[in-house]
């Protein structure tokens, strides 16, 4: 790694570490949400960017993680880490069991299959209110306690969430750069060629789907401890659609792009809300603008800008 990149990284790290202390509290709060959405969006990005799969079921696993954390800590009084584990195990198991049959489908059939899954899960979250509390939800979820250090405000929880996010990003990068990643992209671009190379498509896709579910569940558990309250409204099909926006806005094949997408989805509505009742319309228009003017996502557009500036810089551009 050259010294210039090192300098950028170091600066970035310092900025990241100092940020929650210098911005107003509600922005630190939004930065926590950004981290949570980054974790959830990573899984979708993996499926979309490297497998060409549109996954509209992330709200299901997000919900499972959140309810597992809520139930284990509030109803059963267990330590928080149990909630994280239970949520992760249930989500991965469900993803495996449902994934095997559903992932045989392709294209928009698969998208509809995941959408159907999200709708079923949402309906069950509402119906089984003895477990989930229904619309009233489960409140009083305790803040996370790290060896006596209580993460009870955004500026503290921020670090925990983002460290988890960075860990997930490392896992994702590992997957993408590995042989598995190569096979995934081969499968995405030409499934016949991949099949000819005796790649077990089904197993591969299922594996990535399970990883996506794991990330979704982690994000859900993180969310439960942040908001201290979970209810069915947070886990509807709308939420799945929001998660899908994240990698597409940022640039589906890029991992830092997920962060950009998460920032967009978290901060833009907040900034726009200062403009009055028209803010929802403006958010829709902003989405349209990003997608029309920057078809490779924000990261792709930034990359193109850099290339153009570099060309201009290196003599006659």
């Amino acid at each position: 790694m050259n010294p210039r990149t090192l300098l950028w990284l170091a600066t970035g790290l310092v900025v990241w570490a100092v940020l929650p202390f210098i911005v107003p509290r509600y922005m630190a709060d939004l930065l926590v949400f950004t981290g949570i959405y980054t974790v959830a969006g990573l899984g979708i990005g993996l499926l979309l960017g490297h497998c060409g799969i549109v996954n509209l079921a992330q709200a299901t696993f997000y919900g499972l993680g959140a309810y597992a954390s809520a139930y284990c800590t509030v109803m059963m009084g267990l330590p928080s880490v149990v909630g994280f584990l239970v949520g992760a195990v249930i989500s991965m198991a469900l993803a495996y069991v449902i994934g095997r049959p559903i992932l045989r489908l392709t294209g928009y059939f698969l998208a509809l299959g995941t959408l159907a899954l999200s709708a079923i899960a949402s309906a069950l979250f509402f119906e089984w209110d003895w477990l989930t509390g229904g619309t009233l939800g489960i409140g009083g979820i305790p803040k996370l306690d790290l060896f006596g250090f209580l993460l009870d405000r955004p500026s503290r929880y921020y670090f925990f969430v983002w460290i988890v996010a960075f860990a997930c990003m490392a896992v994702a990068r590992n997957l993408v750069d590995s042989r598995t990643g190569l096979m995934l992209r081969a499968m995405r671009d030409s499934s016949t060629a991949a099949a000819a190379l005796s790649v077990d498509l089904q197993a591969l896709r299922t594996r990535v789907f399970v990883v996506c579910a794991l990330f979704g569940s982690l994000a859900g558990s993180l969310f439960a401890h942040h908001a201290s309250f979970v209810s069915t409204q947070s886990f509807t099909v709308d939420r799945s659609i929001s998660f899908l926006l994240i990698p597409v806005i940022g640039g589906a094949t890029s991992i830092p792009g997920i962060v950009v997408g998460a920032l967009f989805v978290t901060f833009l509505p907040e900034l726009l809300s200062k403009l009055g009742d028209i803010h929802q319309i403006l958010f829709g228009l902003a989405l349209v603008a990003v997608v029309v003017l920057m078809p490779e996502g924000l990261v792709g557009a930034f990359g193109k800008l850099r290339t153009r500036l570099a060309k201009r810089g290196s003599g006659h551009g």
């Binding site: 509290r25 509600y26 907040e270």
Partner: peptide, 21 residues
């Protein structure tokens, strides 16, 4: 007066802004 867009997450952020900001 702030708008939570019928979303509890947004309501939480707005509450933080109103109380601390």
């Amino acid at each position: 007066v702030e708008d939570d867009a019928s979303n509890p997450d947004t309501a939480l952020s707005k509450a933080n802004d109103l109380i601390f900001g």
